[in-house]
Write a protein that binds this DNA or RNA. Structure first.
Lengths: 144, 144
DNA sequence: TTAACTTGTAACTGAATCGATTACATGTTT
DNA sequence: AAACATGTAATCGATTCAGTTACAAGTTAA
């Protein structure tokens, strides 16, 4: 099991739109950088658009960020590309036997723990923004 | 995307083995409580056995915990049932274009963040043991 | 020793998701 | 009108999941 690369690609797309802002970033151009098909990029950009993270116009090449870099958290992107549903990172077997002490209680015992684990993971993304990503990339470029 | 229910089932199995320790818990019996097929249970029990969490003997009904309840963390179970590989909770698109500022650096920028997120999630399980699970189930029984 | 029961394991199934690909309708620009 | 863009649907092969069946091999008790 692995969480879809749509998340990583979404971050890639947004960072590229910003770092390439003097030129229009068409889906074809972005696809070249990500190394995938342009339709895949357009699909993910559609999700980012729907989430209000970018402005795109049909027929017009390129996209712009809807907000400041520092106002877009990785959690925003994570939610936008729809890789993990709310409280469903971990699946629980359903209909355990109600006449068994364990079967009767296991779901309500485990659920809050799984929710806590998912929250701990998501909090990491809430505390990071696209600005952190772009600055890190820029810093790596300076060194070279 | 959802992490396999093997994890939840693994916890169920171990809690049941403990709470039902006066009787032998055959795979058939456990399957009844979990509400699945006995072969599924045997497969997961094979993983728990391989991880050194339970003692099972071919041909002999039942299993015993290899350690004290308080010495088995949820993380031990999580690793045993092999639901998420090390540092592979999130997948990253490979071979982004090396001639692009973003493509060149995105992987090394994102990787440590994904690792941190996965670690934050796993830490929740490291801090909980089977004893916590069993006590919670027992407490719920007391109330009723 | 045989019969009944157990665990261990392999093979197969249908469903779901993923990423890639192709195709094409629709919108924009010159 | 021609060239190029986005939006979106359909399809594909690969992979994972949980369930199922089947059977080899080990254990126990009559």
């Amino acid at each position: 099991m692995s969480i879809s690369s749509r998340f990583a690609v979404g971050i890639h797309i947004l960072a590229l739109i910003d770092l390439n802002k003097e030129t229009a970033s068409s889906s074809e151009f972005i696809a070249g950088s990500v190394n995938t098909n342009a339709a895949v990029i357009r699909k993910i950009m559609g999700m980012l658009k729907k989430a209000g993270l970018i402005d795109v116009q049909p027929g017009v090449a390129g996209a712009k960020l809807s907000r400041e870099l520092s106002e877009i958290t990785l959690f925003d992107i994570y939610k936008a590309v729809n890789v993990v549903e709310e409280n469903e990172l971990f699946s629980i077997h359903d209909q355990p036997h109600p006449d068994c002490v364990v079967g009767k209680n296991i779901q309500s015992t485990i659920e809050p723990i799984f929710m806590a684990a998912q929250s701990a993971m998501e909090k990491v993304f809430q505390n990071l923004t696209l600005e952190d990503i772009v600055k890190d990339i820029e810093a790596k470029e300076q060194v070279q």
